Simulated scan of single mutants.
Amino acid sequence: MAIDRNLFAFLAVAETGNLTAAAEQLHLAQPSLTKRLKLLEDEYGARLFERHPRGMTLTPVGRVLMDHAKRIEQRYIQAREAIDAEKTNKLERLKIGAGPLFQRALLANAFDTLRQEFPETLLELRADVHEQNLPLLRHGHLDVVFGALITEIDEDDIEAIGLLKVHLGALAHLDHALHGKTSVTIRDLAACPWILYSNDKDTSSMVRGYFVRNGLTPPTFSIRTSSYEFGLDMVAKGNYIMPIPAELDQFLRPSGMRVLPLDEPIDRFISGAYVRSSTLAYPVVRRLLELIRQKANELQIQLTPKL
């Protein structure tokens, strides 16, 4: 069995429940993905999925394979990375997934330094929230994922490394009426039109929880967008509110936007890195984490007096 092909294909379909989504995740044509599943079913002599109009679900045999396949996948990736590190101690491609906070505030300087210190390593960035990037880390398509450390990880070989305390705030245009207040309350925000970055379900839950905790009806999001940049453009041009990490404030002020002076953050959480233990064998990965930690500490020191 070609573990890096057929079994990974099975895992992708099992986790997404959809051939199209799994094919996109694996960068495969759908007929090729279907062929790989058929090879597995022929090998085990049983159907692994039930096909439905809206997707695919595991059969009892498929669920048994799923339990074992996850462990096999983890060990396979660990072995491959450990052997590569032992042979060369170099990583040809460092594949990083990162959400908006890390993209805008923390990664650029680190990339510059890594290019100088590890010129043989190609740096690749996939811009998305951790919810979308974590499955790619599990399957070996990413090496490090930066984002909110909210999702519980039950894999033994994936470590969660805290790097930054994040305060979720509300972004508005500099001319927004609420910027005229020294302290903005939740009731001030209740009537505002909100924009939601739709890829980030955790932020949506935090905003709703913020209102519910204070005995108010959660706001109706006026705009949902899968483009973070489009959301920022709408805030810059209109009267909208967008939930973002307050740590991004200094990076957005030149574009005519500021985080509102809330009397309390919408929520607080830890952001950091998800990384496979075997990947830490590479010096370039350890150096990346060191650089991000240094930059995160600087950002935290700059922000603390304002919170």
Rank of each mutant, 00 (worst) to 15 (best):
P193D: 15
P193H: 10
P193A: 13
W194E: 08
I195A: 01
I195K: 00
I195V: 14
L196H: 14
L196Q: 14
Y197D: 09
S198H: 03
D200C: 04
K201D: 05
K201C: 00
K201F: 05
D202H: 03
T203N: 01
T203M: 06
T203V: 12
S204E: 08
S204Y: 03
S204W: 03
S204F: 04
S204H: 04
M206D: 06
V207P: 00
V207H: 00
V207Q: 04
V207W: 03
R208E: 15
R208W: 09
R208M: 07
R208S: 13
R208K: 12
R208H: 12
G209F: 07
G209V: 05
Y210I: 07
Y210H: 11
Y210G: 02
Y210M: 08
Y210A: 04
F211L: 08
F211M: 10
V212A: 10
V212F: 09
N214Y: 02
G215V: 07
G215S: 13
G215I: 09
L216A: 09
T217K: 15
T217P: 01
T217C: 08
P218H: 11
P218A: 15
P219W: 11
P219H: 13
T220Q: 15
T220I: 15
T220R: 15
T220F: 12
F221M: 12
F221Y: 14
F221K: 08
F221T: 02
S222W: 07
S222E: 14
S222I: 03
I223D: 12
I223P: 12
I223S: 13
R224D: 14
T225D: 12
T225R: 07
S226M: 09
S227N: 10
S227Q: 03
S227E: 05
S227K: 06
S227P: 02
Y228C: 00
E229K: 06
E229M: 02
F230Q: 13
F230M: 10
F230P: 00
F230E: 13
G231T: 09
G231Q: 04
G231C: 10
G231V: 06
L232F: 06
L232C: 08
D233H: 08
M234W: 06
V235Q: 01
V235H: 00
A236L: 03
A236T: 05
A236K: 12
A236H: 08
A236N: 05
G238S: 10
N239D: 13
